[in-house]
Simulated assay, not measured.
Amino acid sequence: MPISPNQGSTGGGFAATLTGTGLTGATVVRFGAEPATITASSPTSVSVVAPSGAGVVDATVTTPAGTSNPVPFYYVLPPVVLDVSPSSGPVAGGSTVTVTGRGLATATSVLFGGTAVTPTVLSDSELTAVSPAHAAGEVSLAVLALGGSATAAGAFGFVAAPTVTGFSPLTGLPAGGTLVDITGTGLSTTTGVTFGAVPATFAVLSDTRVAAVAPAQAPGAVSIALTTTGGSATAPGVFLYAL
């Protein structure tokens, strides 16, 4: 006589169905010693709302003809979220986010704000989920599992794509070393600056300013591009390396 699902939250309150034969007139369904609430029954199935419990218990059905064979039911502890990494990603979505904690083996869904995605469960202590597209801002991340749910408030931030509006000065020596002030919006999460294909050292001054040191390059014109958590952007115009 199978039971579906065969595991659930220690707090109870979830629906379960036992199937078999000779179940006509079921009067009591027990999970261990605790009675469940019968919601529907037929000669081949009994639906119930499970009581609270812990560990592995025997589920049985009692009818006027007697008590059924026991079937194991597993009570699962609620999940716990300990860490979310990375903690931010672009508004376009697509970031692979690793969640670590406890009780994650039965996770069925991860919610970024109110948007649900299906996770890839790696172990009882780790899962990954790909962030969906979402408006900019911080959201809670919730894990839904058979044992219940866990929510980490403000655990993930959706970051808008940057814009670059200009830079100064417009020229520098091929030997490099020119300090270039780059302006725009959404620059606070800058992770890289390139002059042409050459990466530059940089410092984030604010959400609207980044200072970068032009690397050495051959004489000529190159584009300046920034990469942030929210995406990438190329500055208008070119930076000229000239003697």
Rank of each mutant, 00 (worst) to 15 (best):
residue 190 T to C: 07
residue 113 G to L: 05
residue 5 P to K: 10
residue 223 S to P: 00
residue 109 S to V: 05
residue 27 T to V: 10
residue 6 N to R: 14
residue 47 S to H: 00
residue 110 V to D: 01
residue 19 T to E: 12
residue 197 A to T: 15
residue 142 A to W: 00
residue 242 A to L: 13
residue 92 A to T: 15
residue 41 S to E: 13
residue 108 T to G: 15
residue 92 A to L: 12
residue 132 P to E: 09
residue 237 G to K: 06
residue 81 V to R: 00
residue 125 S to M: 02
residue 207 D to M: 10
residue 202 F to N: 08
residue 18 L to A: 12
residue 224 I to F: 00
residue 61 V to W: 07
residue 14 F to S: 12
residue 20 G to W: 08
residue 120 T to C: 01
residue 204 V to T: 07
residue 195 F to G: 03
residue 23 L to N: 03
residue 69 N to C: 01
residue 143 V to M: 03
residue 75 Y to T: 09
residue 205 L to Y: 07
residue 13 G to F: 05
residue 229 T to Y: 02
residue 70 P to H: 09
residue 107 A to N: 01
residue 174 P to F: 07
residue 29 V to Q: 08
residue 92 A to P: 08
residue 117 V to Y: 02
residue 165 T to W: 05
residue 177 G to A: 13
residue 116 A to F: 02
residue 108 T to Y: 00
residue 69 N to T: 14
residue 221 A to N: 13
residue 41 S to K: 15
residue 57 V to M: 12
residue 66 G to E: 12
residue 216 A to N: 09
residue 171 T to D: 04
residue 77 L to F: 02
residue 21 T to R: 12
residue 175 A to W: 04
residue 4 S to E: 13
residue 127 L to E: 01
residue 42 S to Q: 09
residue 219 P to Y: 03
residue 134 H to E: 07
residue 225 A to I: 07
residue 232 S to R: 09
residue 24 T to P: 00
residue 146 L to C: 05
residue 134 H to W: 04
residue 109 S to C: 04
residue 42 S to G: 14
residue 82 L to E: 14
residue 207 D to E: 14
residue 177 G to F: 08
residue 225 A to Q: 12
residue 23 L to G: 04
residue 73 F to C: 13
residue 51 P to N: 04
residue 6 N to Y: 14
residue 224 I to R: 04
residue 108 T to W: 02
residue 174 P to T: 11
residue 70 P to I: 04
residue 26 A to L: 07
residue 242 A to M: 09
residue 123 S to G: 13
residue 83 D to S: 15
residue 192 G to W: 01
residue 98 T to G: 00
residue 55 G to P: 08
residue 218 A to Y: 09
residue 202 F to I: 10
residue 122 L to V: 06
residue 173 L to K: 10
residue 206 S to E: 09
residue 172 G to F: 03
residue 73 F to V: 10
residue 92 A to Q: 13
residue 232 S to W: 05
residue 153 A to W: 03
residue 164 V to I: 15
residue 147 G to H: 03
residue 94 G to Q: 13
residue 109 S to A: 14
residue 166 G to E: 10
residue 162 P to A: 04
residue 94 G to N: 13
residue 122 L to G: 11
residue 34 E to M: 10
residue 126 E to K: 14
residue 19 T to L: 05
residue 222 V to M: 00
residue 44 T to F: 08
residue 204 V to W: 05
residue 152 A to V: 09
residue 238 V to S: 06
residue 79 P to K: 11
residue 188 S to L: 12
residue 156 F to Y: 15
residue 34 E to R: 15
residue 8 G to M: 09
residue 220 G to A: 10
residue 225 A to M: 12
residue 149 S to Y: 12
residue 152 A to P: 09
residue 135 A to C: 03
residue 57 V to R: 01
residue 138 E to W: 10
residue 120 T to K: 04
residue 128 T to P: 04
residue 44 T to M: 06
residue 180 V to P: 00
residue 30 R to K: 15
residue 94 G to F: 06
residue 13 G to V: 05
residue 70 P to W: 04
residue 182 I to R: 03
residue 178 T to V: 11
residue 213 V to P: 00
residue 136 A to M: 10
residue 134 H to N: 15
residue 37 T to G: 04
residue 60 T to H: 12
residue 152 A to G: 10
residue 74 Y to I: 07
residue 17 T to H: 03
residue 238 V to Q: 13
residue 56 V to M: 12
residue 17 T to I: 05
residue 240 L to H: 03
residue 7 Q to L: 12
